[in-house]
């Protein structure tokens, strides 16, 4: 962790040795991180890595079990209500009030922050516009599509004009159109100077939205940096994917050695990591290998992610 920014006064969140235990189970194990003002910060990791537990501690709805945590220069243990009044939370599962209409969800949520009814109404109108829900404002919540519910949840989290927005898997389960619309909205917030903290297990989302991210695995932070830095550090510039006819891949013993910096064999294809993917493909051909398909591509965060957290399914 060489490139961690120095302890700065502008940090909105500071965690040192932050730990969360549920009985004997440790969900978050002594993690350190900082989020600077105006930054877009991501927690990347497989299910069960401890992302949501970390988010809940930052949101002051889950007491910390060890270490220290400061949010907006305050202590979540004793100043929860004060911190919560300045943050917006988009939980993993939409927790919209199904007994209220779209607009009422926004207005009432604003009331919880002590805003006047007139102010809530004004902000609700703005946010409905922002979330493209103005036409549905008097509808019930239940019949809305998944994307609409998600946008409403985000709009609701913005009703108190938060300094810090926490998003737990903001686009999981949405179709591509809905995801892109949501990314666009989040990008606009970032431009307005809202600090975003999000968790995701989508690499493209992390690359789209995060200035800086940490990869979590088994309750610990295993890497930290910008998407580009992580790719440079944990992968090569390019990846060559070779797919062989059934049965051939098993008989390739030794024939691939030395072709690339790192070689990974999957059930259906072989991945060769090198800075010049084209050269690898040519070299493989010269060795007389005859793959069915050859694909040369740039390394992505997904390569980093799988390298760091392993390919086996974690449940």
């Amino acid at each position: 962790m060489t490139d961690r920014p120095p302890m700065s006064d502008s940090a909105l969140i500071r965690a040192r040795g932050l730990t969360k235990r549920f009985g004997a189970f440790t969900a978050v194990d002594a993690v350190d991180f900082e989020v600077a003002k105006g930054e877009s910060f991501g927690f990347l990791g497989p299910n069960g890595a401890g992302k949501t537990s970390t988010m809940r501690m930052i949101g002051c709805v889950s007491p910390i079990s060890g270490g220290t945590l400061t949010v907006l220069d305050q202590d979540p243990t004793t100043q929860g209500p004060s911190i919560r009044s300045r943050i917006g939370v988009v939980p993993q599962q939409d927790s919209l009030d199904t007994e209220l209409t779209v607009r009422e969800n926004l207005v009432l949520y604003g009331r919880y922050f002590g805003l006047s009814r007139a102010e809530c109404g004004r902000r609700a109108d703005e946010l409905l516009e922002f979330a493209q829900l103005t036409e549905r404002q008097n509808d019930e919540v239940e019949p809305l599509s998944g994307g609409m519910k998600r946008r409403l949840t985000i709009a609701r989290a913005l009703i108190n004009e938060p300094d810090l927005l926490l998003l737990d898997e903001p686009t999981t389960g949405l179709d591509p159109q809905a995801r892109h619309l949501l990314w666009d909205r989040l990008y606009r917030l970032k431009q307005r100077g809202v600090t975003l903290v999000l968790t995701t297990h989508y690499m493209d989302e992390a690359e789209q939205l995060c200035d800086r991210l940490v990869v979590m695995d088994k309750a610990k932070i295993v890497a930290e940096g910008s998407p580009r830095q992580l790719i440079d550090r944990y992968s090569t510039k390019e990846v060559t994917e070779l797919r062989f006819p059934a049965g051939v891949q098993e008989s390739l013993d030794g024939q691939l050695d030395g072709l690339a910096d790192r070689i990974e064999r999957l059930a259906d294809r072989v991945l060769l990591y090198a800075d010049d993917g084209e050269a690898v493909a040519v070299a493989a051909h010269e060795r007389g290998l005859q793959p069915e398909t050859v694909l040369v591509r740039r390394s992505t965060l997904e390569d980093v992610f799988l390298r760091l957290t392993g390919r086996s399914l974690i449940e």
């Binding site: 949101g59 709805v61 209500p81 004060s82 919560r84 927790s95 922050f113």
Partner: peptide, 12 residues
């Protein structure tokens, strides 16, 4: 309904 979870992320 998780009504209360949502409410708890406000100052309440």
């Amino acid at each position: 309904q998780k009504t209360f979870d949502a409410i708890l992320s406000t100052p309440l």
